[in-house]
Amino acid sequence: MANLEQLKKQALEAVKQSKDIKNLEELRVRFLGREKGELTKILRSLGAMPLEEKKKVGPAANALRAELEQALDKKSAELRVNSLKFEVGLDITMPGTKVGVGHLHLLTQVEKQVREIFKAMNFSVITGPEAETEKYNFDALNIPKDHPARDMWDTFWLRQNEQLTINKKLLTESKKLKVKSEKLLMRTHTSPMQVRFMEKHKPPFQIIVPGRVFRFEATDASHEINFYQVEGLMVGRDVNLANFKFVMNEFFQRLFGKGIKLRYRPSYFPFVEPGLEIDIEWKGKWLEIMGAGMVHPRVFEAAHYNPRDLQGFAFGLGLERIAMIKYNIPDIRLFYSGDLRFIKQF
């Protein structure tokens, strides 16, 4: 028993004094080693002891083993933590250095999403001029002069000198239409590209035209003097209203998620017949999101197509509106503020 007391004192003191992991492991072998450990030896000798002594020494020796193991483990953990503190030169808990990451404008990102979805459905992406002729912006789209239907599009007109006509390259096609007016304006929608594209291409085709458009109107939280539209046009021998619905269902599900609910209802745009509008259900409300319809025969005629041979659908959507709904943006003017506190959020 006295042996055991002495061993306990000796062992615990040695563990306490130990300065590194290596020494600690040596102590573990010295006292608890399977072959020659000092305590192991005592435990092993229990069998040969008289019953009386065994009853006394046995529990004490086992208790010591447990105590010693615990002391070794505790000390070992302590040493490991201390050794870390000593080895590391850099305080990795300091904040990370900021990397200069840029941000694409939210409208660029939304336009890209829209383009990707339509490209996945085999739509080609084209562009067109922002300064347009009255012919393509209105006349060719069955929006007659001096008719209040034209008031749906408040227009910025360009001051024109005698020589000031639009880029001649763009005019060659319209000249064939015996243009009387070549009055220039800032396009009020992306729809002029319908006729421009059809003049140069044969159906069947399906295209989208993203781009900036302009309206002469007072600005407020939901109106801007310039904004972005994406025009769509699909023409073929049999392209019908059911096809339009299919394409739109797919598009909105990909843009807003599978569960999005659409509502189709009648509307009027002079260049489509039938004309429709699409609403989406968002946070319990129906929100207007797109104007569309089947291409009006007059528009086919303006592009020198035979309307009896062809059918098609056209649609237009506002990028700002989509972004405002999807990202909960309260004011359209934020898009044109150039405010980095806005831009860098996306």
Binding site: G102, H103, H105, I343
Partner: peptide, 8 residues
């Protein structure tokens, strides 16, 4: 970072 300004 990308900015959009008015055309006017």
């Amino acid at each position: 970072s990308e900015s959009y300004n008015y055309s006017f």
